[in-house]
Amino acid sequence: MDILIAGATGTLGRQVVRRALDEGHQVRCLVRNPRKATFLKEWGANLVKGDLCKPETLPRTLEGIDAVIDAATARPTDSLTVKEVDWEGKVNLIQATKAADVNRYVFFSILNAENYPDVPMMNIKYCTEQFLAEADLDYTILKPCGFMQGLIPQYAVPILDNQAVWVTGESTPIAYMDTLDLAKFAVRALEVPETAKRSFPLAGSRAWTAEEIINLCENLSGKNAKISRLPMGLLQFLSRAMRFFEWTRNASDRLIFANVLVSGKPFDAEMSEVYDLFGLNPNEMTTVETYLQEYFSRIMKKLKEINYEKEKSKKKKKTPFKSKSKS
């Protein structure tokens, strides 16, 4: 199958590319800057230059395509806003897909997006779900709870660097999944006709609070975390203030998302029927414990090697004084 993947250079998108290639599909990656995506070409994917926010660039990217997997999203460092990429850009891509007579479309949303109309990212995801359903495509909507990859910069790295780990209020339990496993569902959806015109939650084996993740990281690293609690009121103030400046609006939208993370309502879902339909084995999915254990094992081993090399270098620099011979 010839697949166009949007968001191919992102944390999730690159894993979708890798999985699709491993499954024998022909993969075309929609990228704004091909020079920054050469690693995808080295993997065996084809690169096509296009921009979700420039609809005139999209028709040619869909020529000869059988299906689209949409893993694109605005990044915190982007000059473009969440609305421009995750709403206007997605509308452009969906319309271009329909115009090109490409009927199969897999879209990554967020679990429970419909419950947070006041949170820009969640509201936009839900609106995109509705727009996609009304476009009369054979869509499949996948709704992850959270990426395990995000646990590293948020918890693991600060603990290793003796930096503060920031938490806010009552943390929401989240059933994280590895992006490698999320990619399995995306590619598998194209192979299972029963997944068309349906939405599915994607949740890990259990939901974790921030405190539980911190405790796990402490046990695996042998270090104590420096926890700093940020008042929710301060986050809300910063979010409102940042909206006055064009270059901080994307960050402002992300700050509002913190309301979701302190709601206390678990981001979790029953997955037995989903696994059965997709024909995937839950025992083959990565758990948070395994993911973090592998990370800390690699890092601790690397740190020991670095310290060993430093000590070795110091010893080489030490030159003993030669004793003067007595006349």
Rank of each mutant, 00 (worst) to 15 (best):
P59F: 01
E63V: 10
G64T: 08
I65V: 14
D66Q: 15
A67M: 06
A72E: 11
A74V: 08
R75G: 02
P76E: 03
T77C: 02
T77D: 09
L80Q: 15
T81F: 13
T81G: 13
E88A: 04
E88M: 09
E88R: 09
V91R: 07
V91D: 01
L93V: 06
I94E: 04
I94T: 14
A96S: 11
K98F: 03
A99S: 15
A99T: 13
A100M: 08
D101S: 14
N103I: 00
V106P: 11
V106F: 13
F107R: 00
L111D: 00
L111H: 12
L111C: 08
Y116Q: 02
Y116L: 00
P117S: 02
D118E: 14
D118T: 11
M121S: 12
M122E: 10
K125C: 08
K125R: 15
K125D: 06
T128C: 14
F131R: 09
A133N: 07
E134Y: 11
A135M: 03
L137V: 03
L142C: 03
L142K: 11
G146S: 14
M148G: 02
L151P: 03
P153E: 12
Q154K: 13
A156Q: 11
I159H: 01
L160R: 10
Q163Y: 00
Q163S: 14
V167T: 15
E170A: 10
T172N: 14
T172H: 13
P173M: 12
Y176C: 08
Y176N: 01
Y176G: 01
M177F: 02
D178I: 04
T179R: 04
D181Q: 09
L182W: 07
K184D: 09
K184N: 05
A186D: 08
V187T: 12
L190S: 00
E194G: 01
E194Y: 08
